[in-house]
Each structure stands twice: as structure tokens, then as C-alpha cells.
Design a protein around this nucleic acid. Structure first.
Lengths: 221, 221
DNA sequence: TAAAAAATTTAGATTTGTCTAAATTCATTT
DNA sequence: AAATGAATTTAGACAAATCTAAATTTTTTA
């Protein structure tokens, strides 16, 4: 039987998972920044997660979830993404307003609930941001997505995921009429600041900063 | 703006609300028993709720929610019962297995979520146990229900609510094939232990103890 | 490679929610 | 009306999750 984890522990586990996907190993300051907490608080939590045997951790040397820890992280991510799908598809939330609520719902503890929710939603494979939803065994589809910064001029693409959940970004995108499913074409690149000019829906032209372009993942059409 | 309440505070508020519905005033030991906690812990919490101005409380004299407190309690009850309805109607949970999950879901904090859920469920007025669901203003339909202990011999009735959420009771009822909607007739009463003999669905006859009968609410047919 | 800077951990404190044991207050009863 | 007993509160403790400030370790750099 899996031990129970507190909400604080689960939040740390999920954030470690996402960070270690990028580079394999995670460091105290980065995790503290991601969780908007302090490095000292992270250290405290690392000791607890190590004691619960889900984390490789040597003081000063970084840390990462072991396979048990990754399983737990995938369970939380499964819940988060299924709830997001539910909120958008059934309750008609906008895709940009589900994150906060899903952050709460992901901590509800009931395997039966989540498996029945999965069935009710007809086993969706991607959430409203285009991220794959793990199945009840932790398996999920690969993202076949390309970062917008990697496209060539004149290439056409459709946005299928927004990588960052940062509040300001979602506002900017909404203001610019950019969302999941938006079709666009790369018009020009500026080496100076790595910004990019795009046309959306074959009419409106706009500039995106490198930071914004980096957060956008697309399928090439 | 309503202040935020912790999960522990919300659990106390809800339990106080239910107890004060019975007799107007609530006492420390009773609340401790209802929450399966200790009287000293209850006293601590009472001070916090009084400081937040939602509770009338004089040491040693009992306590009760003021109108602000009742509003908050009704908000929690609204969430609990809407989620129960969702679990039974949409996810096909049994009516007797939703309580624990709803106890968690009732603490999710998002007015938008709960109002959208309400709309999605088409504004149900009663939960799967027959209890009325408060609307977004805290109004709810009256229960037109009678306790099974109050029926006369030969009266027929239909079960529409189970008052106690106690685990053992639900098991007993399930075992005995008694649930919401079960039609029954009072056959005999025994003054000795106040037990009652009933026939369900015009065939199976059984005895119910006073404790069980007290937990059952019915509509007279 | 020694000093400075950065990253991390430790030490000690705070808040929340709980507990036990002891003290206090209230109610009952002779 | 004093004594007993029940109910309640107070006092003091603890675990979880956080924090700040100081100490330590690692990394960088001059």
C-alpha cells in the first residue's frame, strides 16, 4: 500500500518531477523558486521525502525522484490533467482559467473517484493545454510537439500546448487572442532579441518575445 | 469579502451547524463526539471561530453559529451535496459510497467551480440521500420527511433520507437491501426496545432496531 | 590556489491543529 | 448549602510546514 502524502509533500513531488524531466537532477534553489518558497523550507521537505524513500538526495549534491517517487508524481499529474479536462469539456471553463482549481482538485484522494472520472470523460489522452494524461498505470502518450522557437520562416503550425502556467503569460496570450488550436505562420525572426513575427488566422500580425515563443508548443501543419 | 477558512475550521463549522439544527445550542462534548476529537481541541477551535466573528460563544455556556456562520455552513453543505449528486448521477457511485469523497471535495474553494457544477447538474434540489441542496444564496427546499419511528403500524412509506452517515449503518442498510427509494410498511412495534418490524417491497420482513429506525426518514405514501 | 560568491543546510522561531493532564466551573443531590 | 460529579477550560506539549538569520559547503574567479 502506498503511504499517504500531505498536500505540501505532493506539491513538492510534482514540482521535482517537472524539473527533473528537464535535466535529470534538481537543485534546492530551483525547486524553491518553482514553488515560491524558501530554500531552507525545501531542504526540510527533502529530508522527509528521503525518509519516505521516494527521493535520491545527498546534501549539497541535488536530488531526484526514484521510480516509486515518479509513480506518485504521475498519479498527481493524472489527477490534475483529468480534472482540467473535466473543467473545460464538461463545465465549460476557459482553458486558461482551470489551473488554480485543478491545483486543488489534484489532491483529492480516491482511486475510485479518479478512475470513474476517467471513464466518464471517455479516457481522454490529452488535457486542454495539450499535455498527455497518464493512464491508471502511469503510461502516457508522447508529446509530438515542437517549440515555436524551432520553426522556420513561412512554416505554418497550430498551437497545441502552453508550457508555462505563469499567470502573466496566460493573460498576455488571451489578450493577443492566442490559444490552443490557434493557427499561425512564422513571418520573420529577429536575431537581436530572438523575437518572432507571426500571423494568426491569416490576418492579424504580431510580435512575440523569445520568452513567449519558448512557452508555446505547436504541431506543424 | 468572506474570510478564508481552513479545512479544520470548515469541518467544525459544518458539524456545529448540524448540531444546532437539532436543539439551537451546541455543547463542547457533543461537538467533540461528532468530530471524533477531544473536548480540549474543540475549545481551542471555538476561540478561533469566535475571533472570526461567526460564532456566539460564552465559556461553559454552549455556542452557536451567528447568521454569518450559518451562511458559511450552508456554502459547505451546498458543495458537499452537489458533489454527492455528481458522484452518483454522473460517475455512477453507489449512494452509500459517496460520503468520504464528498467530505474531501466540499473543501475545494472556487465559487465559479461550484456554480458551474450546479448548472452542469441542472440545479438539483435534493442530494442522493434525499437532503435538500442549498442554492447559491443559501436557500434550500424544506424536507417534508418523517422519521420512521413516528409512523403508525400499517402505514406505508418510502425512504428518502438517511440521517446518519455512520459507516456501520450504511453497511447494515446495504446488507438488508434498504436504500433511498425503498418502499416499506410498518408491521409491528415492540415497546420493549422500541424496535420495529417492517416489510420491504411487500415481501421481505425484517426487524429494525430503534437506532436504525431513527436514522431513516421517509415520505408517507 | 586562496579568496569571494553562490548555493545549501542548520538552528531556532512561528502558526495551526491536535493531544493529555490538571484545574476550574457548573449542575445535582443529599 | 456543601459535596460530589460532570462538563469545560487551561496549561503545556508535539508534529507539520513554514520562515529568517547564521553557518557551512561547493563553485567560481582572480
Amino acid at each position: 500500500m502506498q503511504p499517504n502524502f500531505t498536500v505540501a509533500e505532493e506539491n513538492h513531488i510534482k514540482a521535482i518531477y517537472h524539473l527533473q524531466q528537464l535535466s535529470g537532477k534538481v537543485f534546492t534553489n530551483d525547486l524553491a523558486a518553482a514553488l515560491e518558497t524558501r530554500p531552507a523550507s525545501v531542504t526540510d521537505m527533502l529530508k522527509k521525502l528521503k525518509a519516505k524513500k521516494i527521493l535520491h538526495y545527498e546534501p549539497y549534491q541535488g536530488f531526484y525522484l526514484n521510480s516509486e517517487g515518479k509513480k506518485i508524481a504521475l498519479g498527481i499529474i493524472r489527477k490534475h490533467r483529468l480534472w482540467e479536462y473535466f473543467l473545460v469539456e464538461k463545465l465549460h471553463f476557459g482553458w486558461d482559467e482551470v489551473h488554480e482549481v485543478a491545483e486543488q482538485l489534484e489532491h483529492i484522494n480516491s482511486k475510485k473517484l479518479i478512475d470513474k472520472l476517467d471513464a466518464f470523460l471517455d479516457y481522454p489522452r490529452f488535457d486542454p493545454h495539450g499535455d498527455p494524461i497518464p493512464d491508471s498505470n502511469g503510461k502516457m502518450a508522447a508529446q509530438q510537439q515542437v517549440n515555436l522557437t524551432q520553426l522556420d520562416v513561412n512554416q505554418q503550425a497550430e498551437i497545441c500546448a502552453v508550457a508555462s502556467q505563469a499567470r502573466g503569460l496566460l493573460e498576455l496570450l488571451k489578450h493577443s487572442n492566442i490559444g490552443i488550436g490557434t493557427k499561425l505562420e512564422i513571418k520573420r525572426r529577429f536575431g537581436f532579441d530572438q523575437s518572432v513575427e507571426i500571423t494568426i488566422k491569416n490576418q492579424q500580425t504580431m510580435m512575440l518575445s523569445h520568452q513567449v515563443a519558448q512557452a508555446l508548443f505547436v504541431k506543424i501543419i
